[in-house]
Computed example of a mutant assay.
Amino acid sequence: MDCPEELKYSKEHIWVRVEGNSAVIGITDFAQEELGPISGVELPEEGDELEQDDSIGSVEARKTVADIYAPFSGTVRNVNHEVIDNPALLNDDPYDGGWLLEVTINDHDELKGFMSADDYADYAENKD
Rank of each mutant, 00 (worst) to 15 (best):
G74H: 09
T75N: 12
T75I: 15
T75E: 15
T75S: 13
T75H: 09
V76K: 10
V76S: 12
V76F: 14
R77G: 12
N78S: 14
N78L: 14
V79S: 03
V79K: 12
N80D: 08
N80F: 13
H81A: 13
H81S: 14
E82N: 15
E82F: 13
V83M: 01
V83W: 03
V83H: 06
V83L: 01
I84G: 04
I84W: 04
D85F: 11
D85A: 15
D85S: 15
D85W: 13
D85Q: 12
N86A: 06
P87E: 02
P87L: 04
P87K: 05
P87I: 02
A88H: 05
A88P: 01
L89G: 06
L90R: 10
L90V: 07
N91I: 11
N91P: 01
D92L: 12
D92A: 13
D92M: 07
D93Y: 07
D93C: 12
P94K: 10
P94T: 06
P94N: 07
P94V: 07
Y95G: 14
D96V: 14
D96N: 13
D96G: 13
G97P: 00
G97M: 05
G98R: 03
G98W: 00
W99A: 10
W99L: 11
W99T: 09
L100Y: 10
L100Q: 08
L101R: 07
L101K: 07
E102F: 02
E102P: 01
V103M: 03
V103C: 02
V103A: 07
V103N: 00
V103W: 00
V103K: 02
T104E: 11
T104P: 00
I105V: 10
N106C: 03
N106Q: 06
D107Y: 14
D107P: 04
D107N: 12
H108F: 11
H108C: 02
H108L: 10
H108M: 12
H108G: 01
D109I: 05
D109Q: 12
D109E: 13
D109R: 14
E110S: 03
E110Y: 04
E110P: 05
K112C: 02
K112I: 05
K112G: 05
G113D: 09
G113S: 11
G113N: 09
F114R: 04
F114H: 09
F114A: 00
F114I: 00
M115N: 05
M115D: 03
M115K: 11
M115R: 10
S116C: 08
S116K: 07
S116R: 05
A117D: 10
A117W: 08
A117V: 11
A117C: 09
